[in-house]
Design a protein around this nucleic acid. Structure first.
Lengths: 190, 190
DNA sequence: CTGAACCGTCAGTCTAAACTGACAATACTG
DNA sequence: CAGTATTGTCAGTTTAGACTGACGGTTCAG
């Protein structure tokens, strides 16, 4: 029942449902909803789209659209396309989800993970220096704090190593590598 | 120069610097700042702390502290500790960063990844049904959309596999296992 | 049982971030 | 070169969600 009025509406609903899911995923990542929706629409679109078409399709302002696209271009997952003999600028999204994800991870590592790791090292260094400059019971407490911070830093390094392995592996081969990895662990003994 | 007034101030600054870094990391995750700060303080603390001590130490309201702790307990990374003969309730954080991370990933998979995957399947199913119900050029467009959604869903499944392998591996062995696995796959040929 | 200490909750307030829309800048046309 | 179509920017507004603080419930001491 509830036969759609025409097929255009159906296509629109198919797109909308997917766009909504993608925007939820984006938000889990900490990426803004509009950015996710624009990216999803461009991913689905067979040809590049211009700002006004996107704004109208998603019912958002063109200012918001322009800003979202600027972000997506900065993340390296959307490209600007100009056609000779056309005044408009068009935009197209990366069409391979694995490439998109790979690019995003690489950028986040560079922009977010590396800077926070530097601050973590600063904090660890400060704690170590403070411990060496103190005596008696106070020194003991400072050294305990330093040990915990180091423990956390060690963990963080393992995490960054994990990202690096991810980035070193070719596209679409992840599942296979991980399956192999899983087999390497006969027991869960730590 | 700038000798600290006393060692208590030094300990406090050591803690503050670390707490600030942890809260930044939390925010990258999409976790609220106060929650991250409370967790960091509890991680550093050699003994469990009560609500008011935490609130005073972090300069936040006790309501906020209570809510943050409720979240941390729900995530399974903080425990409630009661001592016989003491009216206060104390709280302590998981002390092993790998265990903390492992627990968090498991919970996020359950709460966030699984539901969004279900919605993705719904969207894919709807697209497939729509394609079958249409004819001619419109059918072609719907099938194109369905193909793209499936492509994305396949990628998402690979990603979930990745999480599952992660959860299957013992603490602290991730990077090493993956590096070994990656080496077993000699070429990047697809 | 009464009072004091403490935790949990939530309506209201506040804040940070997203979004809009008017204007500026740019690129193309004739 | 003037006119027009289009994108980029950002001050002001709106919105989502974090935070506060007053209140109610609970637990323990006396």
């Amino acid at each position: 029942m509830n036969e759609p009025a025409d097929n255009r509406d159906t296509l629109r609903e198919v797109q909308d449902r997917f766009i909504e899911v993608w925007s939820e995923i984006s938000q889990l990542w900490g990426v803004n909803k509009s950015v996710g929706r624009v990216q999803a629409l461009l991913y689905l679109s067979p040809e590049p789209l211009d700002i006004d078409s996107i704004a109208e399709r998603l019912q958002i302002s063109h200012g918001n659209t322009s800003t979202s696209i600027r972000d997506l271009i900065a993340w390296g997952v959307v490209r600007r396309v100009t056609r000779p003999g056309d005044r408009k600028t068009f935009f197209e999204a990366e069409q391979d989800p694995w490439t998109w994800f790979h690019t995003t991870i690489r950028e986040r590592r560079r922009r977010e993970v590396v800077p926070v790791m530097e601050r973590l090292h600063e904090a660890a260094g400060f704690a170590e220096g403070a411990g060496k400059g103190a005596k008696g019971a106070e020194r003991k407490r400072l050294e305990e704090a330093h040990d915990k911070i180091e423990k956390f830093a060690d963990f963080a390094h393992e995490f960054v190593d994990l990202i690096d392995v991810f980035l070193a592996i070719g596209h679409g081969r992840m599942a296979k590598v991980f399956r192999t990895a899983a087999k390497l662990i006969p027991k869960d003994r730590g």
